[in-house]
Design a protein around this nucleic acid. Structure first.
Lengths: 189, 189
DNA sequence: GAAAAAAGACAGAATAGTCGATATAGCAAC
DNA sequence: GTTGCTATATCGACTATTCTGTCTTTTTTC
């Protein structure tokens, strides 16, 4: 894979997050990436395709990072749900946190028929499914319901953090999560 | 107040929500509103001013609506927190629900120095304060903390609903809220 | 007749995307 | 080692549309 292609993806990811997707022109992207439009359009057929690839790569990297963190932290499924919020906190409070890509993308492309919106919705769904899997392994009976609730807390906390960096919202989300996890009926082991 | 001015505000509100703010040009707004740019710029000095007014009006209308609903529903503060989620559900599931304006606006204008972002953050804060007041009246000791948690649930549910209409996320947010409200320490009465 | 609004042209910048010409590599043949 | 081929990248101009915002003139409305 080309180094320039990677550079364009990296720069686009950063600019989309810090300035917004619609507010970032391809001219700006190529200028910051130190290349030209010809090169950008060689690797990406359109800006829309570039946006989709940026979203896809960001989502995969985040999910991989989270999954790796959870895997190496604890072998007990019951602890994973709590740990999840620790890692989300680590992510959210890191200096280069810029928000959840699919949340912003769905706001910039509100039409449900839009392909970017659809991909965002898919990523949100995958994130919930991922949490549901962990909840299921932890013996939670209504794993899907709890996963939805926990994802709402996480996305709400990220929304708060996007509004104001250093809000500390995730700490309270974590506490709320503990209450919900403890209250959720589980299979006897 | 001019009827045309109102019409422009109404149309802009709708278009911003359904197509996105940056994706909606003033030409589109005046065309749909059945007026001209001259008139728009007579009432609003710039598109930015229009956006700010749209946000301000939407926020005030929502808060007034919610406050009226809560006032006429129950006189007991303890019940208001639960009722809050009923009314949010009523709002979210209504056919003309288009999302929470300040959530979308902050996504389109991610820079914290941006005036539109600042106003969005202010609205988010006011919404939390409003919930905190109710929680405080209900005797919740850590009213601010619970208000933050409940607002994260609401905003998370709205995020889910923006992703996919009819997701039903708010129902699970309501259940989670009940658990959190019940678990919150309260002053003895 | 006076004020408000419409109509439409206009400026100047930015938008996405294209095109041709040039430069620069690596690599193979001789 | 030199030459030539080829793929890749660069450069800048270019189209054509859209953007915000302004202007003048005409029409409507009271």
């Amino acid at each position: 894979m080309s180094a320039l292609r990677e550079k364009i993806l990296t720069v686009a990811t950063d600019l989309f997050q810090t300035r917004g997707i619609n507010s970032t022109g391809v001219d700006t992207i190529v200028a910051v990436a130190g290349t030209t439009k010809m090169t950008l359009y060689k690797y990406f057929k359109s800006k829309e395709i570039l946006i989709l690839e940026v979203l896809q790569q960001g989502h995969q990297e985040f999910q991989s990072w989270l999954n790796a963190k959870l895997d190496q932290s604890s072998k007990k499924p019951a602890e994973k749900l709590q740990k999840l919020f620790d890692f989300v906190e680590e992510w959210v409070t890191s200096p280069d946190f810029r928000g959840m890509a699919f949340m912003k993308a769905s706001a910039e492309f509100p039409n449900e028929e839009n392909i970017i919106h659809k991909l965002s919705a898919e990523h949100a769904k995958e994130f919930r499914s991922y949490i549901a899997d962990i909840a299921s392994q932890a013996g939670v009976i209504e794993a899907e319901a709890l996963a939805l609730q926990l994802s709402m807390l996480i996305e709400g906390a990220i929304q708060a953090e996007q509004m104001k960096r250093g809000s500390g919202a995730i700490k309270y989300a974590k506490k709320a999560a503990k209450v919900l996890i403890d209250a959720a009926p589980k299979k006897p082991q």
